[in-house]
Design a protein around this nucleic acid. Structure first.
Lengths: 190, 190
DNA sequence: TCGTAGGTATACCGATCTGTTTACTAGCTC
DNA sequence: GAGCTAGTAAACAGATCGGTATACCTACGA
């Protein structure tokens, strides 16, 4: 992730509003007119700052990824759990994230559903988000001293994503807790 | 699922084309003009048969759900696996389905991302699809003679959905196989 | 034979889409 | 005080959105 230049106050407001509207309603369903109006900003300002809707979408996803990483790192680093239990803390991070920020499922999975064009600037951000999480899980598993950290990290990611989806679709209650319980068994068996 | 009336040939063609376009490009990204043109049908015919785009979307999802259920049931019933192994056959069904029909992830999860309005007629179909799969998994687990079939079925669903997402996002290679392997351990331990 | 169902063809509706343009203003800095 | 940056206000562009209207055609069954 490259360091993004500081945004002007108006641009900051646009990005904040765009984030809420895109996540709540879907990307295609939200027009730039609505974002500008809700932000109390003219369309000219929006286009002067971000260049295009596609670029704004990419910025929205990038910003959200930053927040997610901060949340995960803070959750894990705040804890005093033994190294062997630290991979499970990501499930705790997901649970608090879901409650406050994620009622409609993973923003990156949702965005992926709406952006079939692999050349869209948002697609790179989506790929980054998933790759980072997988790499982070792998590091935690390796620090736990377990064998085959790559394979275990992939298993944990499957559980995290599955819990996010089934939880947001209201088909599995307490999906994150259930997934964490499976993950615990997996780590114990490894 | 209620028995839908037989469609006219033109309507059948519209539904087939709509299914391809909606899944490949996303629902909001596909206009009714494009569907009608690609189907070789006028918009009047489309609206005479389906009434609205929302209704067509719901029909598209319903149709896809029917195909999915047939595929799962055929896969499971074709096999001669022992009852204890039959829940795992759903993972095999998902793998063949993914290869042929599902390169862009679960159509229902993707549709859910695009239809935030809980009153949209497609939302009921999405909920039906997930509930059916969960109930079917539960039945298979129960027939396998395992304890706590409800809990195990939820675990299997989390794994199936997680594999679908991570596989379609190209973040976990062979995600369905990996999920099946975890599921196998889960069933063996139960 | 007449009505109906299922079509085609085409024009149209008002709204909304992303994006641009022109004109002007306030504040900051060199 | 000149020039730059960030912004407002508002109109405009061309395309596309979901949906409707009118007129006509054909096959079929009572």
């Amino acid at each position: 992730m490259s360091a993004e230049p500081v945004l002007t106050p108006a641009a900051e407001k646009v990005l904040e509003v765009a984030g809420e509207l895109f996540y709540a309603n879907g990307i295609h369903a939200v027009g730039v007119d609505a974002i500008a109006a809700e932000s109390g900003v003219t369309k000219k300002t929006l286009y002067d700052r971000f260049g295009s809707k596609d670029a704004l979408v990419a910025r929205y996803l990038r910003r959200r990824d930053e927040r997610w990483r901060e949340h995960v790192l803070a959750t894990v680093e705040r804890s005093r759990a033994a190294p062997a239990r630290r991979p499970l803390l990501v499930f705790d991070a997901l649970e608090t994230w879901t409650a406050t920020m994620n009622p409609r499922g993973c923003a990156f999975v949702n965005a992926h559903a709406e952006l079939p064009d692999a050349g869209h600037p948002g697609r790179e951000v989506i790929a980054d988000q998933k790759r980072w999480l997988l790499a982070y899980l792998r590091a935690l598993v390796a620090e736990a001293g377990l064998r085959n950290p790559a394979k275990l990290a992939r298993a944990l990611l499957i559980l995290l994503e599955g819990a996010t989806v089934t939880g947001s679709l209201d088909v599995v209650p307490d999906a994150v807790r259930a997934a964490k319980s499976i993950a615990k068994d997996l780590l114990d068996a490894a």
